[in-house]
Design a binder for these strands. Structure first.
Length: 589
RNA sequence: GGGGUCGUAGUUCAGUUGGUUAGAAUGCCGGCCUGUCACGCCGGAGGUCGCGGGUUCGAGCCCCGUCGGCCCCGCCA
């Protein structure tokens, strides 16, 4: 048999009947009837049934098929035949046909796999991660990587057509303590000094604009030494984009154009232009900067409606500059005391001190019933736009706690009450982010996006007088409440950049030591520029309907930041450490 | 750093108030079988109950610690 001649098993259809094919792949399953043996053969494209029949071939072929076991690697020559009507299997893509074998060759034997290689395996994720190469043999994962490749290809094609250059930026670079924790790499040549792995190619892509490349993109690996989640890994991939002589509208149109090409083939319509919402509106209506607009249950402000309610937590929240806000769910009857208690615990996770509830029905039940009067109930109901039979949940406290708790309650209730329509996809631009946010711990203003984000021209004057009121030329693109990416128009004026650093409490010296190379570059003619970075992993996760980012990354880490297959991270030889000038010290405490 | 949850044949799980020999399904191995595709039938092998300590006459079960998977808060955008 030829070593390379092959037909993809999963592509065989009735129209191929009569052709002679060579299949090579893994044995999905053997069904042995003695002198008649069925072998399901799997390759990357799918599975096809092979028949080894003593009536149609000689005994040596049947004997070879007898030796075959699950996951053996085999090469089979045979003829594609259409199955008889009763023998067709509508559950298989290749179920119209089968391959009658004339030769069976075992290319490699295999131990019994630790879990069954089937679409619906019940193996634990722990086991699947240890034997990741076996997990990827399963069609659902194989398909994810085929999809990921397709998306990456479409991205490159799209940006290429739009005159963007893909440029690689360093993996070994300079630590910039702002933002996430850096991964550090010790320098052998320079004892005591370290490279950092990039959290994103941010500074490099701006330098490429100064370099005059005008339009840059990169499918770039990024590294952040932070806690892992179902949608976060230590290393992840961004579609990183930057362009010169452009404005926000260019970015919106560019990304909408990209999404309109890559999402619809995955069954996700992306009608353009996408709606836009200001950050303030998102926070007021949804309590979060990445609202899921697939359902209502919007947040209502109750600050004046609770004026007449003599309930101490409301009074103190408002007196201390906080807020009282609430959301309304239908079907108050669905909410038992037990369930309300669970929701209260849930609200506390986000820092709420309590959760007030009010059922608007014949005899208004409420956790604060003794503080309510008919008129205060009426004003609450009006402010909440609640109807009879509804239940309201109210949180009082600091603005960020109230928003956080209500936003998460809303999402949970939306899911539990089945208010989120299936197969609905809402793209959204969130715009007009604040430039700065107050860092309570550091007692200073911090950049919400990063220090190179441009303030809105109309707000520049307030940079010193009222930093919190300055809006940024920053934007996020959101799908169904998940942030797909974000970016900004950058500062290209050295004077404005200095004022920004000052607002951030970064002195000239510090700015020079940390970002000197960028500031130097900007003195030599920086074009107006801006860009965006999109989370490729999250996009593929949504397109593949995966529940976890791990399902779209070939070799992911566990939530404890380990690779169960390679057992990384691991100890290294003392000799390696010595060469790097590194001595380990005891863990603190 | 914190909270929750899980850990028992290869795998997925059951295992009563602490009780004598830890079960099931599936997979695996052997035999039979010419139309299966969750093949069927007969037979068989397979256990450090995550790990370490403790309580007890006796621990899979109770207590303490520890390791690991997942989810969440903090963190991260």
């Amino acid at each position: 048999m030829s070593q390379t001649e092959r037909t993809a098993a999963g592509t065989l259809r009735a129209e191929h009947a009569g052709t002679e094919v060579v299949l090579a792949g893994w044995v999905q399953k053997r069904r042995d009837f003695g002198e008649l043996i069925f072998v399901d053969l799997r390759d990357r494209s799918g599975v096809a049934q092979v028949v080894v029949d003593l009536e149609q071939t000689d005994a040596s072929v049947v004997a070879a098929a007898k030796d075959v076991r699950s996951e053996f690697v085999v090469r089979i020559r045979g003829k594609v035949v259409e199955r008889s009507t009763e023998a067709k299997n509508p559950k298989m893509a290749t179920g119209e046909i089968e391959v009658v074998a004339s030769a069976v060759e075992i290319l490699a034997k295999a131990d019994t796999p630790p879990f069954t290689i089937e679409d619906e395996t019940n193996a634990s994720e722990e086991l699947r991660l240890k034997y990741r190469y076996l997990d990827i043999r399963r069609q659902p994962l194989t398909k994810n990587f085929i999809l990921r490749d397709k998306v990456a290809w479409q991205v490159r094609d799209y940006f290429h057509r739009n005159d963007f250059l893909e440029v690689e930026t360093p993996i070994l670079t300079k630590s910039t303590p702002e933002g996430a924790r850096d991964f550090l790499v010790p320098s052998r040549v320079h004892h005591g000094e370290f490279y950092a792995l990039p959290q994103s190619p941010q500074l490099f892509k701006q330098l490429l604009m100064v370099a005059g490349l005008e339009r840059y993109y990169q499918i770039a690996r990024c590294f952040r030494d932070e806690a892992l989640r179902s949608d976060r890994q230590l290393e992840f991939t961004q579609i990183d984009v930057e362009a010169s002589f452009i404005d926000e509208e260019f970015i919106y149109a560019l990304i909408e154009g990209l999404f309109a090409e890559i999402f619809p083939p995955a069954g996700i319509p992306a009608p353009t232009p996408f709606p836009r919402m200001t950050w303030q509106e998102a926070m007021d209506r949804f309590g979060i900067d990445r609202p899921d607009t697939r359902f209502g249950m919007e947040i209502s402000d109750l600050s004046s409606a609770v004026d007449a309610i003599d309930f101490a937590p409301f009074k103190s929240a408002l007196a201390e500059g906080g807020m009282v806000r609430g959301i309304v769910a239908p079907n108050a009857a669905n909410f038992s005391r037990k369930r309300i208690d669970e929701l209260t615990e849930y609200a506390k996770v986000f820092g709420a001190t309590g959760l007030v509830w009010v059922k608007f029905d014949a005899e208004t039940g409420s956790s604060i019933k003794k503080f309510l009067t008919p008129s205060s109930i009426e004003s609450l109901q009006n402010a909440l736009h609640a109807e009879q039979g509804n239940i309201a949940f109210i949180v009082a406290g600091k603005p960020n706690v109230v928003c956080d708790a209500l936003a998460n309650l809303r999402l949970r209730l939306g899911r539990e009450e089945k208010l989120i329509p299936d197969d609905s996809w809402n793209f959204l631009w969130v715009v007009d982010f604040p430039l700065l946010e107050w860092d309570e711990e550091g007692k200073r203003w911090a950049a919400r996006h990063h220090p190179f984000t441009s303030p809105k021209a109309t707000d520049v004057a307030k940079l010193e007088s009222d930093p919190g009121a300055v809006n940024a030329r920053a934007y996020d693109v959101v799908l169904n409440g998940l942030e797909l990416g974000g970016g900004s128009i950058r500062i290209n004026d050295t004077n404005l950049q200095s004022r920004m650093f000052e607002a951030l409490g970064i002195g000239a010296e510090e700015a020079k030591s940390r970002f000197g190379f960028l500031l130097d570059a900007f003195r030599f003619g920086a074009p107006p520029h801006g860009g965006i970075a999109l989370g490729l992993d999250r996009m593929v996760m949504l397109m593949s309907r995966s529940q976890s980012i791990r399902d779209v990354i070939a070799f992911p880490k566990t939530t404890r930041a380990q690779c169960l297959m390679t057992e990384a991270p691991s100890h290294v030889d003392d000799a390696q450490l010595r060469e790097l000038g590194i001595q380990l010290r005891a863990k603190p405490e």
